Amino acid sequence: MSRHHLPSIDGWHTVAVGWDAGMNTFFAQVLDPVDEVTLDRGSPVDPINDPAEVINLVRDHVFEIPASMTDQLSADRDAEPHDAQRLAEVTALLTNLRNIA
């Protein structure tokens, strides 16, 4: 999972974009100063497959977006691709551990 923080326009909000290999989606998040979610997009139910989309989602909330951010997000996905088989194995392991306890 990658997470890149971007400077918010007001300096108070937390703005982040990234890649979540486990959920197989890019994501965009904006949190207010008390960590209440203002924007949270990108989930297994509503995946974002294009890194430019998450950039567009946060564009109105940030002071500046590095020109290389779309390329960086693509590189993050390439470095940690979604592995459905591995996710299933970890889920089964955790389920078995819960049953033992």
Rank of each mutant, 00 (worst) to 15 (best):
D10N: 15
G42C: 03
W19V: 00
G22A: 10
D10W: 04
P66L: 04
A92T: 11
E36R: 13
T14F: 02
I9K: 14
V62T: 14
P51H: 05
I65P: 06
D60L: 05
T38S: 06
D50S: 04
D60V: 09
P81E: 12
D20C: 10
H61W: 15
N49Q: 07
I100R: 14
H13M: 08
F63T: 15
I9F: 04
D50E: 13
H13S: 12
S74Q: 14
V34Y: 10
R59D: 14
D20T: 02
A28E: 02
G22Q: 11
T70M: 02
N56W: 09
G42P: 00
S2R: 09
G22K: 07
D32I: 01
D40S: 12
L73F: 03
V90C: 01
N24V: 03
E80L: 09
D50R: 01
P81L: 11
W12P: 00
S74A: 15
R77D: 04
V62N: 07
P81N: 08
L87I: 15
S74D: 13
A21L: 04
A101F: 08
N96C: 06
N49V: 09
I55A: 08
A16M: 11
D10I: 03
G18S: 05
G18Q: 04
D35V: 02
L6M: 06
D32P: 03
R59H: 13
E36M: 10
V62R: 02
L97F: 09
Q72A: 14
N49K: 05
S68P: 00
G18K: 01
D71E: 15
S68K: 10
A16N: 02
V30Q: 02
E64S: 13
I65Q: 07
R77Y: 00
D78I: 07
L97A: 10
R41Y: 04
L31F: 10
T95M: 08
V30R: 03
W12Y: 07
A84S: 15
I48T: 04
R98C: 01
A88L: 13
T95R: 13
V90P: 01
N56L: 12
A75N: 12
L73G: 09
A52C: 05
D78Y: 06
Q85M: 09
P81F: 12
Q72P: 00
R86S: 12
D10G: 01
L57Y: 08
S43K: 03
I55K: 00
A84Q: 14
V17I: 08
L97E: 14
